[in-house]
Computed example of a mutant assay.
Amino acid sequence: MNAHNWIDLKQDADTGIETLRAHFQGHAYDPHWHDSYLVGVTEQGVQQFNCRRAKHQSTPGKVFLLEPGDIHDGEAPTDDGFTYRMLYIDPQWLTRELGAVFDKAPDNSELSFANTLTTDLPLAHATALAFETLHRGELKIVRQTALDALLEGLTRHLHWRTRYDQDPRLPLVAQKAREYLHANAQYDIGLDQLAAATGVDRFRLTRAFKAAYGMAPHAYLVQLRLATARRMLSQGEQPTTVAMTLGFADQSHLGRWFVRAYGLTPALYRKRCSNLPDR
């Protein structure tokens, strides 16, 4: 990691929301995704990232909104780098809390952000305030008031999207491969094995998968394992246990991939989120 880069991460015990403030120069992190909804604001500099097949540049005051599974990367195109604040919001918590705002969620649906990047000053202010109250561990009534303001601001950008069992926008072979990876993520899966499970040769499989998800099957498998690792570590699991459970060669192998995706080590992430000592 660049010597000028830094990360400050905490987790709110009541809501499970992670709060992260970070600064990066140059390359920040490789393409990856999260199981959470991401709501963040850029404080300083230009935050450049690719998401949903488009390149975005977030500048101070802009709000970036990512759904669970949105693949994104990050870099600083200018020498002074960028600083940002981010909230990682649990989908179940968000859906439950918004139940007070929406009368009834449509059947077979999930919350979706209309745009990845938006200029909404009230929402930017609400995001920054929610971050501060959670990150500093303010009184519960103060944190809840700030979160209510954030939720109110988010409703202008959220809509209910139909949840597809089979997404018609994606090639069937890519969907089959993705389902196979999710079902067998802990195993040492080869391309030939994955191709056999989808009924095509591995070259067609790789092309279809890249076209559908923006990365090769092996990269998707690594990111799938990392998303699970992040969840396990936040629950207090030891990095050695996580590496073994998810099929990484060893703890150092997990560590290298984790740093590339999230900018900090598994042990540090576990410590910041679980408040448990290392053994």
Rank of each mutant, 00 (worst) to 15 (best):
L254I: 02
E97Q: 02
F102E: 01
T240I: 15
D12C: 03
I89K: 00
I141T: 13
P106F: 02
H125V: 14
E152S: 12
Q44Y: 11
E152V: 10
T133K: 09
A249W: 09
R85L: 13
P68I: 12
A183R: 03
E110Y: 13
L264M: 09
Y84H: 11
T155Q: 02
L134G: 00
P68T: 12
E97M: 01
T83W: 04
P277Y: 11
P122D: 05
R178H: 09
G26W: 09
D165V: 14
N50R: 15
V46H: 09
T42H: 08
M215E: 09
L66V: 09
V259Y: 08
Q48W: 04
P77M: 03
D79H: 14
T228A: 14
A3Y: 14
F113L: 01
D8Y: 03
H182S: 11
R53L: 08
L170N: 01
M1F: 05
K210H: 11
D73V: 02
T42K: 05
N2P: 06
T228N: 14
R143G: 00
I189V: 07
I7K: 14
P122H: 04
G26Y: 03
T240C: 15
T42S: 05
L20G: 12
E132M: 09
Q186N: 09
P106Q: 07
D30F: 07
L111T: 02
K210S: 07
S112L: 13
H27V: 13
H34P: 05
P106T: 04
D148V: 07
Q251K: 08
T116V: 10
R21W: 05
S112F: 13
I71N: 08
R207N: 13
L147F: 00
A149L: 13
Y213L: 03
R204F: 10
W257P: 13
D120G: 05
R225V: 04
A208L: 07
V259H: 04
P266W: 00
W257T: 15
Q235P: 05
F248T: 10
